[in-house]
Simulated scan of single mutants.
Amino acid sequence: MYSSVSARAGEIRTLRIIGFGSISTFVGTMVEAMVLTALGALLGIAITWLFFDGLTASTIGGSFSQVVFDFRLSGANIINGFVLAMVVGFWVACSRPGAPHARRFPQSTPEDQRASALSAAWR
């Protein structure tokens, strides 16, 4: 989220200049973060289902006792994993330093000033 916002600070600034408010800019950035979180969660669920569903593993302890694990991916586990991923994604998106950039009023940077000077010179 932070790298997404910081890499696109100019785009966010442009949206703010053409009239989008701080709330709509923040919500747009948050929706993007949540969509990426959902895609990551679905990819993680698919990988887990492909590689770990039905896997049986065992250990041998120090006293030669054996513990057997049988991994089954149920519907409740899938839902809990997806919800947990979305909660963590929302929490990280709101707490990272990138979130305030989407709410802040746009300020011109040296790059913007050079671009304005170049465009004024060509007029």
Rank of each mutant, 00 (worst) to 15 (best):
S6H: 11
A7F: 10
I12L: 15
R13E: 13
R13T: 13
T14F: 08
T14W: 08
I17P: 00
I17R: 11
F20T: 10
G21L: 02
S22E: 12
G28I: 02
T29H: 11
M30L: 15
A33I: 01
M34E: 08
G40E: 07
L42V: 03
G44A: 08
G44Q: 07
G44C: 05
A46L: 09
T48A: 09
T48L: 12
W49V: 10
F52T: 11
L55D: 03
S58I: 01
T59Y: 06
T59E: 05
S63T: 10
F64M: 08
F64C: 00
F64K: 07
D70K: 10
L73M: 15
G75C: 03
A76V: 06
I79Q: 08
I79Y: 12
G81T: 11
V87A: 06
F90C: 14
W91H: 03
V92I: 06
A93M: 11
A93S: 15
S95Y: 11
R96H: 14
R96E: 15
P97R: 11
P97W: 12
G98V: 02
A102E: 01
P106R: 04
T109N: 13
T109G: 11
E111G: 13
Q113D: 07
R114K: 14
S116V: 11
S116N: 09
A121K: 14
